[in-house]
Amino acid sequence: MARHLVGRILQTLLSMLVVISIVFVLTRMSGNPIQLLLDVNATERDQQILTHYLGLDQPMPVQYAIYVKNIFLGDFGKSILTRRPVVEHIWERLPATAELGLVAMAMSVLIGVPLGMYSAVHRGTALDTGARIFAVLGQSMPAFWLGLMLILLFGVVLGVLPAGGRGGALNLILPAFTLGYFTSAAILRLTRSAMLEVLGSDYIKFARLKGLSEQVVLWKHGLKNALLPVVTFAVMLFVQFLGGAVVTETVFAWPGLGRLILESITTRDYPIVQAGVLVLSALYLTGNLCVDVLYSYLNPRIRHARA
């Protein structure tokens, strides 16, 4: 187990180095930030001075070496635009993103798991059909359209929820639902199929033959086993929410990390893009690692196979 863990950690570190390198090259291919930092009438001399100040006149391999060395020293650099430490910018936005991601994930799980389970247990009924329609709609409706419709309905027509921006708990409901609906539909489908598989297994039949109550069979023996893939999926979803909620963040004017990275891409603020992607990939890879380890721990067959 320990050997497996060390191997996975090394794999994770290697993956991060690859991510760092790809992001470094891609950001430099996207254009020169100097053009955006100066007025259109700036002279050649002004451009040279700023290029030198930002270290962009160094050869690419030198810039890369400095960048990697600084990361290992915990220095993510300063924003090209604001000259403030990049870490400050990330920390400013991370709470908003984490808040939205957590609530969206909670919504996804709270909607998706019970509905998926109910749908599996009452397979073929009208409610099962309804749940499947809910799932198809959730997975086919684009987030920007759903978001705008929700704003129109709850913000403008009914006037019961804020139309956008970050504020109190009420501000969270619409963006979290928009973000969570797509994934709740996915969780619903995953729970349903996992439950169907579990409910048809021999140990469930045996549990019923033993005379256990249906509630115990479903909740203790059925759902517990069906939840394994759902838990994995939910953890990865949360990490994806942190960086991939940019459409929802844009529609609801939510000041999250996804929007910060997107805006930094448009302004060629390399250090923020690099640090933002690094943070997200680190979270993703760490989440993946945790799930992997957890999975091995929970499922003896996997643990033994790896051993």
Partner: peptide, 18 residues
């Protein structure tokens, strides 16, 4: 000043009084 990049959201926020 709030940055609201999506024009439809700006419009909805104005109509909603936000």
């Amino acid at each position: 000043f709030l940055k609201v990049p999506e024009p439809a959201t700006r419009m909805a926020m104005l109509r909603a009084g936000s």
